[in-house]
Design a protein around this nucleic acid. Structure first.
Lengths: 328, 328
DNA sequence: ACTAGCACTACTATTCTACGAGTGCTAATT
DNA sequence: AATTAGCACTCGTAGAATAGTAGTGCTAGT
C-alpha cells in the first residue's frame, strides 16, 4: 500500500513524464512538494521497489513502469472534463445532421487523431452479427457484372465478377433465389447456406449453374468479416518513442493487421478500458484505450492507440464524450 | 556527347550504386574496365563536368545525379526481359480467371510491391470519364438508407444517408427519376443536372423534396472524382535513403494526397515513362515509372514509385508485362 | 593517351576529456 | 523516527584529438 506522499510523487512523475519524455529527477519534484530532494529520493526508491518506477541507467531520473502507469490510471488519475477547445471541434462534427452515424464516428475520430496525435480505430460489428439484407447485381458489360451485398446494419460491399456465356436472365433468377431464401442469414453462414439451399435448385433450373454458384460463393466467402477503420496511423511518426524506423515498421505492421486489432474487443466490457503495453496484446510499446458503443443497429468498438506515455485523462474524457454522443 | 568509354563508366556507376547505395570509387570501376584507376578518374571528372555524376564530399566516390539517371535510362539501360522468377509470381495472378480485371491489377501490384520493395499505384478513370449507370437505394431502418452509385465502368460507391419523415415511396420515385433522366451523364455533371432536371420535378410531386434533393446532391458531390489505389506505401521504410522520420513523413503525406498523385497521369503518353526526382512533380527524392493501360471500359494508369536509385530495368520490364497482359 | 605515384581531403571510428544531472548513502538535525 | 544536508559516485552527452582509410586531383613519366 502506498502512502499519501508516495501517491503524490508517482502522480507528479507520471504527469511530468507524459508532458515531456525525459526521466524525472528528485529535485524537480521537491520543488512542487514541500520537502527536500533527499526525501523524494527515498520515496522514489520505495516506489521503484514496488515496481512502479524505473531507471534508464544507474544514476538517471525515474520513468513510470507499466505497473506505474497502471497504478496511475487506476488510482491517481483525476476524471477530467473535456477542454472547451476539444469539445468545440468535436461538436461541429456531431451536430452535422446530414451525416449518417457511421460517418460521424469516422469524422470525429479523424478530428481526435489530429488533436491528440494518436491513432484511432473503429471496429464495426463482426460478420456473424451482420445479417444479409439483400444483394443487387448490375451488369457492366457482356461478361462482367457487379454484385453488391448489403447487410441489415448498412454494411455494403461489392465485387466485380466475370461470367462467361451466362445470360442475364439466369443471373437474375439466382439473385432472386438468394434474396428470397437466404436474406436474414448471418453473413458468415451464407456460403454454407448457398451450398445446401441454392446450389441444388439452380443445379436443376439454371444453365451454367457451376459458374454462377462459384461466383456467388466467392463473393460471400470474401466478405470482410470485420469492419476495421484505422485513422491516423502516421501519428506514430510524431511520437518520440517511435523515432526509429524499425519500431515504426513494427507498429505499422500491427496496425495493418485486422486480426490483431480485433483483439481490442475481445473483452465484452462496455465501459472505457485502458490496456497498457503488454496488456494491449497488440504491442508492448503502445497503450490502447477503448470502449464499446451501441446505437440501434450500429454498434462496435472505438479505440485510441498511442505510446504508453499517453495523455490518459484527456483521451478517456474524449472517449466518454464520444460514447455518450453516439449513444443518443 | 559522351565517348564510348564514358558511357560504359556511367553505366557501371549507376548500376553499382543501384545495387548498393555507397559512392562508387574509381578503383572498383578500373577492375571491370581494362584501364587504370587514374584513367577512370579522369573520365569521371569529365562526367561530373557534364553534370551526370556528383560527389558527396571533396574526396568521395561518385554517385549519379538526376541527369545521370536520366542519361542512363534514355541511352544506356538495356531492355531486359523479366526474370523467370518475377514472371512466375505474376502469372499466377493473371491466370486466375475468376477475378475481374480491376482486382487482377490490384493483386498483381501487390505482388510487384512485395517483390521490389517499391510502392505501386493504380489511378482509375476520372469522374468526368465515368458515366452514371444507375443508383440503388436500400432502406436500413426508419430514418436511414443506403444509396449506391454505380458507373458504367463498374466503379461503385455507397453512402449512408439520413432522412426524417420521408416515405419510402417518395424516395423510390426520386430514384426512378434519376435513373430514367440522368443515367448516362458524367458523374461530375450529375450534381448540376440534379438541380436543373430533377429538383423542379420533385419540387412539385414529392413531399420533403428539399431534404431528398439535398441528400442526393451530397451523394454525388462527394463521389470520389478519382480512383486512387496506393499499394505498399510502407516499402519506403525499407529504402536506406528514407531512413529518417522526417523524410518518411514527407513522403507518406505525398502518397496520401490524391491530387498530387493525380499529376502522374498529366501527360497522356501511352508508353512507359520514367520521371526522375524533380521530374516526378511528386517529390524530388523519388522516381515514378508509369504507363497508361486500357482494356475495354477499364482504363487508367499504373505507376511504380521508389527512390531515384531504382532498379529501372527491372521495373520497366514489369510494367511492360503488366500493360501487355492487361490489354488483352 | 594512359598510368604510376603522391599529396591531400574528408568521412569514420575510437578514445579522451570535461561536465552535469542525477543517484545512494551517511551523518547530522528536527 | 522522519527529514535533510552533504558528498562520493555513476552514467550519458558533447566536444576535441587521434588515427585510419577510401577516395580524390594533379604531375610527371611511360
Amino acid at each position: 500500500m502506498l502512502t499519501d506522499r508516495q501517491c503524490k510523487i508517482l502522480k507528479l512523475i507520471v504527469e511530468k513524464y507524459i508532458k515531456d519524455p525525459v526521466p524525472v529527477g528528485s529535485k524537480s519534484i521537491s520543488k512542487t512538494l514541500k520537502c527536500s530532494s533527499a526525501t523524494v529520493r527515498n520515496e522514489m526508491m520505495a516506489l521503484e521497489d514496488e515496481g512502479l518506477l524505473e531507471k534508464t541507467h544507474t544514476s538517471s531520473g525515474r520513468i513510470p513502469s507499466e505497473d506505474g502507469y497502471r497504478y496511475y490510471v487506476d488510482h491517481l488519475m483525476e476524471a477530467k472534463k473535456m477542454s472547451g477547445e476539444d469539445m468545440l471541434k468535436l461538436q461541429t462534427v456531431f451536430h452535422n445532421q446530414q451525416l449518417a452515424l457511421s460517418d460521424v464516428i469516422v469524422k470525429s475520430l479523424q478530428v481526435i487523431s489530429d488533436m491528440t496525435n494518436y491513432t484511432t480505430v473503429v471496429l464495426g460489428s463482426t460478420s456473424h452479427e451482420n445479417l444479409l439484407k439483400q444483394i443487387e447485381v448490375v451488369p457492366i458489360d457482356d461478361d462482367s457484372m457487379i454484385v453488391i451485398v448489403i447487410t441489415d446494419r448498412g454494411h455494403v460491399e461489392h465485387k466485380n465478377i466475370r461470367l462467361k456465356d451466362v445470360s442475364l436472365e439466369e443471373v437474375k433468377k439466382t439473385v432472386n433465389l438468394i434474396n428470397n431464401l437466404i436474406a436474414g442469414t448471418p453473413i458468415d453462414e451464407v456460403s454454407t447456406k448457398l451450398e445446401y439451399e441454392i446450389k441444388p435448385i439452380i443445379g436443376k433450373y439454371v444453365k451454367q449453374h457451376e459458374q454462377l454458384y462459384n461466383a456467388f460463393y466467392h463473393v460471400f466467402s470474401d466478405f470482410t468479416n470485420q469492419e476495421v477503420n484505422v485513422v491516423g496511423k502516421n501519428k506514430f511518426l510524431k511520437q518520440p518513442e517511435f523515432s526509429n524506423i524499425d519500431k515504426i515498421q513494427n507498429v505499422f505492421n500491427k496496425l495493418e493487421n485486422p486480426e490483431l486489432l480485433h483483439r481490442i474487443e475481445e473483452d465484452d466490457d462496455n465501459n472505457i478500458k485502458v490496456y497498457i503495453g503488454s496488456e494491449s496484446k497488440i504491442d508492448d510499446d503502445v497503450t490502447v484505450i477503448k470502449t464499446r458503443f451501441k446505437n440501434g443497429n450500429t454498434e462496435g468498438t472505438l479505440a485510441i492507440i498511442g505510446p504508453k506515455r499517453m495523455e490518459y485523462d484527456r483521451v478517456v474524457s474524449m472517449l466518454e464524450y464520444m460514447k455518450e454522443n453516439i449513444e443518443r
